[in-house]
Design a protein around this nucleic acid. Structure first.
Lengths: 202, 202
DNA sequence: GTCTATAGTTCGATAGAC
DNA sequence: GTCTATCGAACTATAGAC
């Protein structure tokens, strides 16, 4: 064979793919999916539009990769908060604060992840990533039930409710001017909803 | 003018449009958006597929009309529950039960409304209809705060959280085998989350 | 209803790597 | 010399304006 994909070439290809992905993420974070045209991504990454198709099958595939990449960060951050040591109240507070503060710090991007209408192929990923958050929170709730910090409850169902609650509540603040008390309100909401004994004083 | 749209003709057109809409709703309720192809809708309504485009600009437009029609029923039902007389606890219980029981009675349709990936044009309607539910619930919460049944809180933000919570929590039960305690669990969740004084005993 | 603009995708030509 | 990544213009489809 006359041409073989050497390690050097592969590294260059990988780097280019990463540049395209980073460019797409920046565009979504700035102006949502509407600003993330194939041409704009290519231009920002410094390549021709056709080159995008050497790395991604089509635009949906590119957007899906953007989505997965960004969501993975968020899931990891929330997992870190959920597995920190401390009481159920401390863990829950950390989870909600982590999720909400990160979203409010990058509101345009968070809106794209949580709610912005998008290609069904990408929309389907929302279901998966919400399930990931749910499972993390369900573990924390189950631990709280075992330690009697919480009354018995269906941890998975309640965790799904919490994920939906935080996500939906943030949509308004993400698109408009957020009430400065948004995060504390959500923490209180979460603690109360679980039946944590000290929720009323939060 | 050689052709005038008489009242008779108009009535026939309206009836045909209604039949198409009903057919589309039945198909979505049975097999989701995937089963709601233009051909299937036309066949079920007993017309040629081209006729569909006499009444709807395109498939997105048809689906949007399906969505609006079905959601309007649900919003009306929840509004009825929210404006019934009674305590904050009774109202909240009625709201959650109405929403959840109706969803669990027609699970495939509810899943299509709440979560199924779909054309962005239709997806955008989800934002609108969740805002409608939010406003209804926010009114109920605000009344509860005024009557001191609830502690002071941002009614709109908390209402959005509740809408998200119930919607997201239902997705699992809608696609799988629901825990029989799903609805009571969600009622308890809702009452606790608002800080209702008797939530712990629910 | 037609026309125009825009955006996703394709494809032949080119240049550079093996 | 052969192969492949890249380019960028052309194609196609769709949406919005007049």
């Amino acid at each position: 064979m006359a041409y073989r994909r050497t390690a050097d070439i592969q590294a260059r290809l990988d780097a280019q793919r990463a540049r395209l992905l980073a460019a797409a993420i920046e565009l979504v974070a700035t102006s949502g999916y509407a600003g993330c045209s194939v041409n704009a991504v290519a231009a920002r990454a410094g390549v021709a539009s056709g080159t995008v198709y050497n790395h991604f099958a089509n635009k949906s595939d590119l957007l899906a990769e953007v989505f997965r990449t960004v969501v993975r960060r968020e899931v990891d951050a929330v997992r870190g908060a959920a597995t920190s040591s401390g009481s159920l109240t401390q863990r829950t507070t950390a989870i909600v604060e982590t999720f909400a503060e990160r979203a409010l710090t990058a509101p345009r991007l968070a809106y794209a992840l949580l709610a912005e209408p998008v290609d069904p192929a990408v929309d389907g990923l929302r279901l998966q990533f919400r399930a990931a958050f749910r499972d993390i929170i369900a573990d924390s709730i189950a631990a709280g039930v075992r330690s009697a910090e919480l009354p018995p409850q269906n941890a998975s169902l309640v965790a799904a409710a919490l994920v939906g609650a935080i996500g939906e509540a943030l949509i308004g603040p993400l698109v408009g001017q957020p009430d400065p008390a948004t995060v504390p309100t959500l923490v209180t909401f979460a603690l109360r909803s679980l039946g944590a004994s000290d929720a009323a004083h939060a």
